[in-house]
C-alpha cells in the first residue's frame, strides 16, 4: 500500500510508524488510537472526547464508502451520527482549525486527500 515515499518515522509504543512528507501515514494499516494521539501531539493538539467521536465518524465513513469525505458530507455524517448540534461546520472548524476534512483524515489514518476540491 505504500504509494508514498517515507519521509520520517514517529515512535509509537515502541514501534516505528512511517510518515510521508506531510505527516500522513504511509501504510494505512499502521493506524491505532495511539498513533492518532502521537500525530495530534506533533500538531500540539490534545485529542478530547469530541475529537475522538469525529475521528470515529471519519473511520466509519471510510469503512463504508472507501473514500474520505469532503467537508459537506462530513458535516452530514457527523450530524447523523452525533446529532444536529454537532453536525455543523462551525463545530468541526473549532475542533480541527484550517481544514477539518484534511486534518481529520490525517488523524483518522485515511488516505491523503488529492487536493481535488
Amino acid at each position: 500500500m505504500a504509494t508514498t515515499t517515507i519521509e520520517r518515522w514517529v515512535r509509537v509504543e515502541g514501534q516505528e510508524i512511517a510518515l510521508d512528507p506531510e505527516g500522513y501515514l504511509v501504510d494505512m494499516t499502521d493506524w491505532s488510537p495511539a498513533v492518532a494521539e502521537a500525530l495530534a501531539a506533533e500538531e500540539e493538539r490534545e485529542l478530547t472526547a469530541e475529537h475522538w467521536e469525529v475521528i470515529e465518524v471519519l473511520r466509519d465513513f471510510y469503512a463504508r464508502y472507501e473514500m474520505a469525505p469532503a467537508m459537506r458530507p462530513l458535516v452530514k455524517a457527523v450530524g447523523q451520527a452525533l446529532g444536529p448540534e454537532k453536525g455543523k461546520s462551525l463545530h468541526l472548524m473549532k475542533l480541527f482549525p484550517d481544514s477539518p476534512a484534511k486534518a481529520g483524515a490525517r488523524l483518522a489514518g485515511l488516505p491523503k486527500p488529492t487536493n481535488c476540491l
Binding site: Y65, M67, P73, K76
Partner: peptide
C-alpha cells in the same frame, strides 16, 4: 482494484 459500488452508496451523503 477498488469498485465503484461503495461510491454509489455514498451519493446520498453528497445529497
Amino acid at each position: 482494484q477498488k469498485g465503484t459500488h461503495p461510491t454509489l452508496d455514498m451519493l446520498a451523503m453528497y445529497d
